[in-house]
Structures are given as structure tokens and as C-alpha cells.
Design a protein around this nucleic acid. Structure first.
Lengths: 185, 185
DNA sequence: TGAAGCATGTAATTTGTTACATGATTGG
DNA sequence: CCAATCATGTAACAAATTACATGCTTCA
């Protein structure tokens, strides 16, 4: 006799969890239930990690289908979708945060790739310098804002300050780099 | 009467040129005719920009179909494919190098994303620090090697030194960053 | 009250990545 | 002469990007 039918009615096909998945987990962990649009707005403020519009909608769907998020849709109106992290998601997030191994990133900067291949430095520098200065200013402003936050704010965790500091130092390197190329003759 | 048949026998459908395309163009411009495998080996030495194996084979094919490269295949043996840049490709490369506008990249570092979301800094630092130190050492070695090269070497163009210097400065920032996190208590 | 723009989503296309597959070469 | 590894490529899949589509709000 056959054994009882396997319960593959379950929602969770295995899926691969990417950095985007953990991004969503982390945000939902601190924000509670949220719409993709709300996630998008938080991410948009950062400047050191982004996610495309279309992915902000598709990634939570994917995660929900696999059981890492719960999904609830409004009945009337715009039928917005609200997502929240489940215990399964929380567990995955915790593991990821607890695992210290991850690839160190490449530089992968387009402007310096052009430089590498012989582009004329000055025109490049004249475009890159103000862009980098603007980014630096933005990070510095965020850093100051952080220092005046109440600790209950979602972002008021020590890692935030650390990462902003790292961002600031990197932008300073770029600013000096392009400045020097402009000055030279 | 109908006009003469339009010559859509031509090879070139329009394709989008990406940073990978220009990478291939630049390499072929200096290396002359080369196989994907040869390109791969040059890129592998760098550490600041990479291309996956599979793309190193597919990208030149794509570019050749559109007319930016010429393609020649060995008759016997492995039937290697050799590519070379055409005038059309050279023109596209020149335009790209001449255009100083390009997006400034994000930090997009996985380890600091974890930090941002509250991961414990020390275990992260203990993994990241040696990785960054190794990369720094590698860049510095390359930089020294560069200084002793003959100017006829394919890589002996000023941009190379500039980009290595940029890489070195960035890695130093990371090294100090993670060092400090280890020292703290 | 209708135009502008914000909010919300899906579809199509292109890229990137992993996994597989197999032909040559070389050193033991 | 055979095992290891280098060299070469394809197929299947996953992710990112662009383009499209349309419902709500708000303010002139």
C-alpha cells in the first residue's frame, strides 16, 4: 500500500536568500508590518545600498510564498499588500547576521575603469568630484542627524553610525583622489 | 512597384553596450586578437573588476554578432574562437572613454550591511580584516610591479597606476575600520 | 474637474550566475 | 598511458533593469 500522500501543498518551495532578502527581513524586523512602498522610502534615504523599484515589489512576494514573510492584502481601495516577518524569516535573519563570513567587495567604480583604460583624467575628475562631494556631504549630514536621534528610532543602532563613518571615509578618499587629478598639470 | 529588398541580411541588430562590453573592447584594443580565455586571464589578475567565466564567452559573441568585433574560429583542434575589435567597436570605445559622465558607485559592502543591521562587530572584523589586508598587499605588490614595467607592456598606461592607488587607499580605509572594531572594548 | 504627480503594481527583456559537459595537455 | 588539471564552451536558472499600465490625491 502507498504511504499517505506527501503534503506538498505546503507553500514553501526552497528559495535562495540573497542580500536583498536579508535587507527586507531587517527592515521588516524593525518596522513591523509594512508595504513595499514604505520599504522603498526607507532604503531611498540611505545612499549606500539600493534596491530597484520592481524588486521591492517582487522580493517580498517571493519571500512570502516561501514562508519567510506573512502577507495581507487590503480588501478595498488600492488593495495594498502588507508584509511582516515570520519566525522562519527571523531565524534566517539571525543566522545571516551571526555569520561573519562574507565576500569583500571589489572597487568596481566605472569612472576609474575608464581611467584605467586611458580616459583623460581631467574631464572625468570635473564630473566625479562634485558628485563625490555631494555624497560626502550627505553622509555627514546623516551622521549628524544620527547623533541627535532618540534611541527609540528604528535606525538608532550602533551599526548605523559605524557604516556612516565608513562611508564618509571612503568618500573622502574619492574626493581627494579626484581633487588631485584636477590640480595636476 | 516595391523598392529593392531592404538588406536586413546585415549582422547588426542594435544591442546595448554595457560596462562589460567596454571592458572587452579595451582589452582587445591593447591585446589585438584574443580568445575569451586570454581575456579571462588578464582580468583575473586585477582584483578591482571581474567578469564571470560564462560571460567572458558570451559577451564577445554578442558583440561580434552586432559588428563590434570580428570573429575567427580555428578549423581543427579545439576550434578556438579569436576575436578582434573592429572600427565600429573602436569608435564606440572612443566615445565611451571620452564621455566623463558616469554614476558614482555605492558602497554596497555586505559586511557593513550586516553591521548596519546590528550584527556583532568583532566576529565580522576578525574575518574581514585579514581579507582586506590581503587585498591591500596585493594592490601594493601590483603597484610596485607596475613601476618596474617596460612602457611597452600592455598595462603600462598612466591610468593603471592611478586606479591602483585608488584601490590602495580604499583598502587602507577598510583595514583601519576593521582594526578599530577589533581593538575596541 | 482635470492635470500633475504620487503610489502601486506587472510584463518583457537583458544580465549575471551556477551547474554541467567535454576536449586537450602534461607530468608522473 | 592515465589522472589531474587546464581550456573551452553551453544550458538552465535567478536576478536586475526597463518599460508599461493604471488607480488614487491634491491642488490649481
Amino acid at each position: 500500500l502507498p504511504t499517505s500522500t506527501s503534503p506538498d501543498s505546503a507553500m514553501s518551495n526552497e528559495i535562495r536568500l540573497t542580500s536583498n532578502s536579508f535587507l527586507v527581513f531587517s527592515l521588516l524586523e524593525t518596522m513591523g508590518e509594512a508595504t513595499p512602498y514604505a520599504l522603498k522610502n526607507v532604503i531611498a534615504d540611505w545612499g549606500f545600498w539600493s534596491l530597484h523599484h520592481a524588486q521591492i515589489y517582487s522580493e517580498p512576494q517571493r519571500l512570502a510564498k516561501a514562508g519567510y514573510l506573512s502577507e495581507r492584502q487590503e480588501e478595498g481601495g488600492r488593495r495594498r499588500r502588507y508584509y511582516a516577518i515570520t519566525d522562519m524569516g527571523r531565524k534566517a535573519l539571525k543566522e545571516w547576521l551571526g555569520d561573519p563570513s562574507c565576500e569583500a567587495d571589489e572597487l568596481r567604480d566605472l569612472a576609474s575603469l575608464k581611467l584605467f583604460f586611458g580616459a583623460d583624467p581631467k574631464p572625468l575628475a570635473r564630473v566625479q568630484l562634485p558628485a563625490r562631494q555631494a555624497k560626502l556631504a550627505e553622509y555627514e549630514a546623516q551622521r549628524e542627524a544620527f547623533d541627535t536621534l532618540s534611541p527609540s528610532d528604528y535606525a538608532a543602532i550602533p551599526g548605523v553610525a559605524l557604516v556612516l563613518d565608513a562611508g564618509i571615509r571612503h568618500e573622502r578618499v574619492w574626493v581627494r583622489f579626484w581633487e588631485r587629478l584636477i590640480e595636476e598639470d
